[in-house]
Amino acid sequence: MKDFDHMPGHLARRFQQIAVAVFHAEANALGFDLTPVQFAALSAIDSYPGIDQAGLAGVIAYDRTTITGVVDRLVQKGLATRQASVSDRRVRELRVTALGAKTLKEIEPAVRSAQTLMLRGLDEDEAETLLGLLRKAVEAGNDLSRAPMRAAE
């Protein structure tokens, strides 16, 4: 097949490459050393204080075995904490630190700018249509993923 540039898988991979590059450029321009996955994880921890790593993996649709490394880096950077649960010592609860909350607030302009840059070339209606179709396709294929998105408990 020669028409790979018309295949959704190829286009999705290319868009992901662009999205990651744009996110890094915008975050780095403001002095932040944060990957898109680290940002998503930190945002989710902020939204669900006390979430555990398995829950976090589900909320951001990330592989449970590799979420540990993401959390490790957030903890090393002082952006999040990992503490044993008082109700179940086997569970590690995650929380955003003061520095993590400050980072989320200060990185927001870079994240907004990145979203705009990712969709450049599209007018407002086209951007909304693309996002709606992406959401629809992702929801329909969620169960096919190795890391399906799950609601927080």
Rank of each mutant, 00 (worst) to 15 (best):
Asp63Met: 03
Ala25Ser: 15
Val70Gln: 01
Glu93Ile: 09
His6Thr: 12
Arg13Phe: 11
Thr65Cys: 01
Leu99Ala: 15
Met118Ala: 02
Phe15His: 06
Gly100Asp: 09
Arg82Gln: 13
Pro36Ser: 03
Ala98Trp: 00
Ala54Ile: 10
Val20Asn: 00
Ala57Cys: 13
Pro109His: 02
Ala127Glu: 04
Gln83Thr: 14
Ile60Trp: 09
Ala84Glu: 15
Thr97Asp: 08
Val111Gln: 02
Gln17Asp: 13
Gly100Lys: 06
Leu42Ser: 00
Arg112Glu: 12
Glu139Cys: 04
Glu139His: 13
Pro148Ala: 10
Asp3Leu: 03
Met1Tyr: 10
Asp33Gly: 09
Thr103Met: 07
Lys2Arg: 15
Asn142Gly: 07
Leu134Ile: 14
Pro36Leu: 08
Asp123Phe: 04
Pro8Gln: 08
Ala25Gln: 11
Leu34Ile: 15
Glu124Pro: 01
Phe32Val: 13
Val22His: 04
Ala29Gln: 14
Met149His: 15
Lys105Pro: 09
Thr129Glu: 05
Arg90Ala: 13
Gly55Leu: 07
Thr116Ile: 12
Ile60Val: 10
Arg82Cys: 05
Ser43Cys: 12
Glu108Ala: 14
Ala12Gly: 06
Ser87Phe: 14
Met118Lys: 10
Gly100Tyr: 03
Asn28Trp: 02
Ile18Val: 09
Ser47His: 15
Glu153Val: 10
Thr97Phe: 00
Leu11Pro: 00
Leu11Ala: 02
Tyr62Thr: 00
Arg89Gly: 10
Ala29Phe: 04
Ser43His: 09
Leu133Asp: 07
Leu11Asp: 05
Val37Ser: 12
Leu34Asn: 05
Gln17Val: 00
Met1Phe: 13
Ala110Gly: 04
Gln83Met: 13
Tyr62Arg: 11
Ala84Asn: 13
Thr97Met: 05
Leu130Trp: 01
Glu153Phe: 13
Gly58Trp: 00
Gly78Tyr: 10
Asp63His: 12
Val96Met: 07
Asp123Ile: 06
Glu128Gly: 07
Ala25Pro: 00
Pro8His: 13
Gly132Ile: 07
Arg120Gln: 14
Thr81Ile: 06
Gly58Thr: 04
Phe15Ser: 03
Arg120Asp: 02
Gly31Arg: 09
Ser85Met: 09
His10Phe: 12
Leu117Lys: 05
Glu26Gln: 11
Asp88Pro: 11
Met1Glu: 07
Asp123Tyr: 04
